[in-house]
Design a protein around this nucleic acid. Sequence first.
DNA 1: GGCTTAATGCAAATCACTTGCAATTGTTTT
DNA 2: AAAACAATTGCAAGTGATTTGCATTAAGCC
Lengths: 152, 152
Amino acid sequence: MIGIEQRVAIFEGQLKQAGLRMTQQRRLILRILAEAHDHPDAKGIFTRAFAHDPTLSLSTVYRTMKLLESQGAIERHAFEDGVSRYEHADQQHHDHLIDVETGQVVEFSSPEIEALQAKIAAELGYEIVRHRLELYGRKLSKAGRKRVKKDV
Amino acid sequence: MIGIEQRVAIFEGQLKQAGLRMTQQRRLILRILAEAHDHPDAKGIFTRAFAHDPTLSLSTVYRTMKLLESQGAIERHAFEDGVSRYEHADQQHHDHLIDVETGQVVEFSSPEIEALQAKIAAELGYEIVRHRLELYGRKLSKAGRKRVKKDV
DNA sequence: GGCTTAATGCAAATCACTTGCAATTGTTTT
DNA sequence: AAAACAATTGCAAGTGATTTGCATTAAGCC
Ligand SMILES: [Mn+2]
Ligand SMILES: [Mn+2]
Ligand SMILES: [Zn+2]
Ligand SMILES: [Zn+2]
């Protein structure tokens, strides 16, 4: 988890190398994303950014997200509702559990599952390029929680 | 894997119970689906059905898919490209591996992964309602295959 | 064969996302 | 610092999948 100024600087370097430009809009969106600790969609990012720059347009957000993704600066996820949600890519790989009641997104990572996936793919004669794992769940009650612990 | 006439009969019963009707279109789409051994999208189903009944409309396909899904007769999947694909629900639960080169969909099921998912969810205080697991992979060459086996 | 109302076909509407284009702005060049 | 030049933006229009309003058709029931 590096600082936001550093992230902007790194990205500016990547841009320059590709003959692209660091614009006010890109800087702003990058900052919004660095400050976000959830998984906002384009409209959500637009709303937050618009508060700082009311001349910003939604298309620019979309174009910027595509650029950031192609540069590996962010990750895009499309959960059940199909809309793309984004998060910065400076964290270790993880998957998501979505609370079906509240929509809350919980992150988790499991080396066992990752290994198992690779093994399954290999048995089918494939190597994994990427994957998508989403759990949709409901919070356990205290009672339910206890029951689970006993079972384990 | 039951016969298609039986499936139609079962579905007709479910409909009647809900005050709904068994129409020619529904019968046809149900048959197409029973005969399909892939994961067609609405347009694909429409094309196949249209060959049997050129008065059928795409909206009816969409409406029927929604109905079939709500009755638990089919399952809907939205892989990376976002379009909904369907398959009949009379098979055991399984997940999918999509060949990134050809788009081919390979089915697999792993009790270990299912168990691991449940365990992870429980540790987070959740019970799984449903989940989505998709592996996107590339076919291993013979050499790659051998290497994998050596590693294991 | 009528009656009631669910279902259909068609066209128009949604919704997230993309794109063409003229105006703007970042970066380089004089 | 101003000109030059292409990348970027805002806006409006376009996409593509899916949904929906509505007049018309056709199941299920007498
Ligand atoms: Mn995340
Ligand atoms: Mn399948
Ligand atoms: Zn993972
Ligand atoms: Zn599964």
